[in-house]
Design a protein around this nucleic acid. Structure first.
Lengths: 224, 224
DNA sequence: CGATAGCTTGAGAGTACTCAAAGTGGGTGG
DNA sequence: CCACCCACTTTGAGTACTCTCAAGCTATCG
């Protein structure tokens, strides 16, 4: 999951159902805190997240970290480059995964439909990452956090009558490293949103979105 | 071209020679300032840059711009998402292009080798964009500009005895919108590099890199 | 119930931004 | 051929946003 431009987000965010013409490998369970792979590992499998949330990270030698993406249900993770993984991947909570052989992406023999679907997922990934560039390079802290919450609301928000609720399985520092901010700035920005009554913080991992319209406005730069 | 981590940049940056087992479409020439495609256009062709430089941009509704990438020789541009282009693409100077049909990427019928090569290019693109996230989200202005110049030096730098020279076909504001900075900050950072004798500015579009070692150091966070 | 990791808040500093003006260079037309 | 014009670049001054460092708070887990 990347932070795309909310208003232009008119393509289906997920790959709801993958072609399953052939018998597939059984679903895998990854426990909270377990790693699915590390940077530099050989890629043998790609995975579609069925439930739960993954966190993909890269590290600089001096310790600075960038969260590359969160893996939400429907997302495909593990695209290889030169046959290797280029991020670490950890489960933020228990995660169910549907594995696909790397060969299903790269050679496509056996299941052309699956091959095509994985390729389309990779191409969609490129487009979404382009949106994310805009967010990292050009948006302020409040625009970043509002955009992030808007995307989550759309993807995994729950209806609460006239409000909406979003669960955040990741820590504040995960959010910070995803948005290119510090934990302190993320925390302050949450407080700012809370004080302006746009959100309420039920507990650290649950945000009630009280004014989705105002949030969307903030995400595209309408300050106020 | 993205700004990857210079020291970890050990994979070949370009796709030097693409499989050409079948007769190909003839090379295309794009004149300075001409657009190859616009955001929203249907994708009919992908292109490998043979010579010259392209600029890929996205716009926000309020006018903020992000340069997504520069297309240097060897780079493939035009990957579709939902069959559409998601950036504008302009020639910064005269550009020669080798076109490939979109079907060569998506169906692969006719030329499996070309299909595989285009797929690998897309996967490499994803990995390089992940590096670029790190740069946009976690690096300072001087680290960004030094990283940018380091990558260009490696990709297209010319040897000048004990110095190296890099041609910059893009404007300062193109660089700014690529690195997530303002033109003023880019200009000031160039001046800073010049005053510390790491670079010399021959003319606006030509930079002499006098101390590549110091530049590399700055790019990975050794301030000085 | 205490320890600890994560979160929030505060104060101050620094980097990058905004607004403004001056400098530079390429191109066009007289 | 030269002068002017315009776009781009550089420099300056002041501001604002985000970061850093520090301390207090909260929640979870032994």
């Amino acid at each position: 999951m990347y932070v795309t431009i909310p208003t232009e987000n008119n393509t289906p965010p997920t790959v709801p159902s993958f072609p399953t013409s052939l018998p597939q490998t059984a679903e895998t369970l990854l426990r909270t805190g377990a790693y699915l792979y590390f940077e530099g590992d050989d890629v043998e499998w790609l995975y579609q997240v069925t439930s739960g949330t993954l966190r993909l990270t890269r590290l600089l030698s001096d310790g600075r970290r960038q969260v590359i993406a969160f893996g939400y249900p429907g997302d495909i993770v593990g695209f290889p480059a030169s046959g290797l993984h280029h991020t670490d991947c950890e489960a933020l909570c228990d995660v169910r995964l549907q594995p696909f052989r790397r060969s299903a992406l790269e050679s496509g023999e056996g299941d052309p439909k699956l091959h095509a679907a994985l390729l389309q997922a990779a191409l969609r990934e490129i487009s979404q990452m382009q949106d994310h560039f805009m967010m990292l390079g050009r948006k302020s802290a409040i625009e970043k956090l509002a955009s992030f919450l808007c995307v989550l609301e759309t993807r995994v928000g729950k209806d609460l009558g006239n409000h909406r609720s979003v669960t955040l399985p990741m820590s504040r520092s995960d959010i910070a490293d995803f948005l290119g901010l510090t934990t302190e700035t993320v925390s302050r920005t949450f407080t700012q949103l809370r004080k302006s009554k746009i959100i309420a913080i039920d507990n650290i991992h649950t945000v009630i979105i009280q004014r989705p319209d105002a949030m969307l406005g903030l995400s595209i730069g309408h300050h106020g």
